[in-house]
């Protein structure tokens, strides 16, 4: 897998940055001439991954950073990697089940991973308890035509 045009960003792990995380993803992907639907789907997937990192990676008063990495994978795929160095996930398969939530009254839906899976082509979750979590997503864009 050859990755080009790599962009790495470090952000404070606070929900106030969720909109900025989406906007940065949109700005990066816009260079690849995506459709409106593709752009919306990427923004949504990034929004889910970022809020997961903030809410579940750094629970309670825990502070830290969220690291976003973008790359173009030739010819028309975008790879997005979102990493936190927080508490990690004990059971990744369970965390990815639709409607599974650790919610304790905050009305979270447990649909974050399902949305990420639906709106991207590949998703991989690497996590170790106590070390953090990396979500890697690849989205294929339909916009590169060979004339």
């Amino acid at each position: 897998m050859i990755m080009e045009k790599i962009l790495k960003i470090q952000m404070d792990a606070v929900l106030e940055n969720q909109g900025l995380a989406r906007a940065l993803a949109a700005a990066y992907v816009s260079e690849m001439d995506p459709t409106v639907d593709e752009l919306t789907e990427i923004k949504t997937a990034v929004s889910e991954a970022f809020s997961n990192a903030v809410i579940h990676g750094y629970p309670g008063d825990m502070q830290g950073s969220v690291y976003m990495e973008f790359a173009v994978v030739s010819p028309a795929n975008v790879m997005i990697k979102i990493t936190d160095h927080g508490v990690g996930i004990e059971d990744i398969a369970k965390a990815m089940e639709p409607l599974f939530t650790t919610d304790t009254g905050d009305e979270r839906s447990g649909m974050g991973f399902t949305v990420m899976e639906s709106f991207t082509d590949r998703i991989k979750v690497d996590s170790r308890p106590g070390e953090g979590t990396t979500v890697t997503m690849i989205k294929k864009l339909d916009t590169y035509y060979d004339f």
Partner: peptide, 13 residues
């Protein structure tokens, strides 16, 4: 103009 899965929780709640 944009909604992620947080909207599900708001509606269901």
């Amino acid at each position: 103009t944009f909604m992620d899965s947080s909207g599900i929780g708001v509606i269901l709640g």
